[in-house]
């Protein structure tokens, strides 16, 4: 079995996990949620196996490099980081309903990678610009940050649809406590912010060693900075002005929109990061 087959299978496993989590939440079937956790874990293992195998395959092809060099590979890695971080959160908070809002994101990421006709899943040799030790450090830090922001986004959506009120019954009443959602959003954003900062810094150091400048206002750089501005606004508002609840949830959603644009939208604009683009 090659890495593509394993990763396609992983897509199905994540789909099943997402379904189980949503089912458990909507129909109040705790057992489905517990199975969901194991299925998500299985998906994560498959995801990791697929990534490692792809790495080995690239060496067998004589063009060995870490599988973090194009849109397909980054989406696959993104799906895995979302799942890992989610499973840690689930373990820590003991709540599976969050999974109904987090695992679908992992599923979407890997399904988009596997199914979109615009995304090439072939292992390609590295172009000269990407031949650097900074590749792994830069991509890994960025995507850990993005994944934390993605889950924070899911949690903020939960907060918004719950409307910040206490519900007596119904599907929404089973969502976690407002306070927990609010605190979790903020915890995830702080975690993501540290890694986004690290991602921007590793990118800057890399740019300086490859192009002789650490900052050049290239669209991807600029959008990562815009994302950084949005989340640092959120953190200042929280720490210094005590913002809570809905306002934080909205800022978190806005921040994730910036993440998505940094990730996908920038490929529509001219710039140096074009190797992250379709194709």
């Amino acid at each position: 079995m090659n890495s593509s087959a394993i990763l396609s299978l992983t897509t199905l496993v994540y789909g099943l996990a997402a379904f189980l989590y949503i089912f458990a939440w909507v129909f109040k079937k705790e057992i489905a949620g517990r199975v969901g956790t194991w299925v998500a874990f299985l998906g994560m293992v498959g995801n990791l196996a697929g990534i490692i195998l792809r790495w080995i395959e690239s060496y067998q092809m004589g063009i060995g490099h870490a599988p973090l060099s194009n849109l397909y590979e980054s989406l696959v890695f993104f799906a895995m980081t979302i799942t890992v971080i989610y499973l840690v959160v689930e373990h820590k908070y003991g709540n599976r309903i969050i999974g109904a809002f987090a695992i679908p994101l992992a599923f979407l990421a890997i399904a988009y990678a596997s199914l979109s006709p615009n995304i090439n899943d072939k292992i390609q040799p590295l172009i000269p610009a990407l031949k650097s030790n900074w590749l792994i450090a830069h991509v890994v830090t960025c995507f850990i940050g993005y994944a934390a922001f993605a889950i924070a986004f899911g949690v903020s959506i939960m907060y918004i649809i719950k409307g910040g009120t206490i519900r007596e019954e119904g599907v929404l009443s089973r969502l976690p406590d407002n306070k927990v959602l609010d605190e979790l959003t903020y915890q995830l954003i702080m975690f993501g912010f540290l890694f986004l900062t690290g991602g921007i810094i590793t990118g800057a150091v890399w740019a300086n060693s490859a192009w002789g400048r650490y900052w050049g206002w290239d669209p991807k750089e600029t959008w990562s900075l815009i994302t950084w501005f949005v989340y640092s606004t959120l953190i200042h508002a929280r720490m210094m002005r005590g913002w809570h609840g809905k306002r934080i949830a909205f800022l978190s959603i806005l921040g994730f929109m910036a993440v998505i644009f940094t990730y996908f939208g920038v490929n529509l604009l001219p710039g140096l990061h074009s190797y992250g683009a379709m194709g």
Binding site: I226, F229, V230, S232, T233, H236, A237, A258
Partner: peptide, 10 residues
């Protein structure tokens, strides 16, 4: 002011 400037920069 911080929030205003950060958002304006963004």
């Amino acid at each position: 002011l911080t929030v205003a400037v950060l958002l304006s920069l963004a």
